Simulated assay, not measured.
Amino acid sequence: MTLWQQIREDWQAHGRDWTKPGFRAVATHRFGVWRMGVRQPLRAPLSLIYRALFRHCRNVYGIELPYSVLLGRRVVIEHQGGIVVHGATVIGDDCIIRQNCTLGIRRMDALADAPILEQGVQLGAGAVVLGRITLGKGALIGANAVVMRDVPPGAIATGVPATVRERSPE
């Protein structure tokens, strides 16, 4: 899939609105990943552009999404502000991340121990996910939950610290 195909798919996932900060952050991420495939000396000016775009998204929109994150398809950042994603995080397809979410590490001596979000995970506003844990396919993380243990597929995690329960049939 080319860079433009990915950006078009992300644009559609964000409601076909190119002005949404979430779309702009994801598009900047896609550009950052793409530019790493360009050989030197052409990569240097592209890296300057990426850094400017990244800092704009971080400082103006409050969305910190580095190019080193493994980002799936159609990931939606619902609202701007206070979103911090560690560079070693893996985010699967069709995930939704809301405002003030943190996906990070627990300790400075384990820099690669970042969360893994499988397909269709939804993070509520203010959710904090720390450490090398896996949020299973379709898991829901409640608002302001602090998750420090694995969440099985389809489960709901709420509270501080988060307690996991199965989703009731609808």
Score class of each variant (00 low, 15 high):
100 N>D: 12
26 V>I: 15
166 E>I: 11
155 A>Y: 14
169 P>S: 11
113 D>N: 11
72 G>T: 06
93 D>E: 03
34 W>A: 15
97 I>M: 04
93 D>Q: 02
31 F>M: 04
38 V>S: 05
8 R>T: 11
140 L>W: 09
18 W>C: 08
83 I>N: 01
42 L>T: 04
68 S>V: 07
97 I>C: 03
106 R>Y: 12
4 W>P: 04
7 I>A: 07
158 T>D: 04
9 E>L: 13
98 R>A: 11
112 A>E: 11
134 T>L: 02
2 T>M: 03
4 W>R: 09
157 A>T: 01
61 Y>E: 04
154 G>T: 10
112 A>H: 12
94 D>V: 00
86 H>L: 06
33 V>E: 08
99 Q>R: 06
30 R>V: 14
48 L>D: 06
146 V>R: 00
110 A>T: 13
89 T>S: 09
91 I>W: 04
23 F>T: 01
114 A>G: 09
19 T>S: 15
110 A>S: 13
61 Y>C: 06
127 A>Y: 09
157 A>L: 02
108 M>L: 15
33 V>D: 05
103 L>K: 00
81 G>S: 10
73 R>Y: 07
130 L>N: 00
138 G>A: 12
132 R>V: 10
141 I>F: 09
96 I>L: 13
119 Q>Y: 09
98 R>D: 07
31 F>I: 07
111 L>S: 06
20 K>Y: 14
85 V>D: 02
86 H>P: 03
21 P>C: 11
81 G>P: 07
87 G>Q: 10
43 R>H: 14
149 R>F: 11
134 T>P: 02
160 V>S: 05
1 M>T: 11
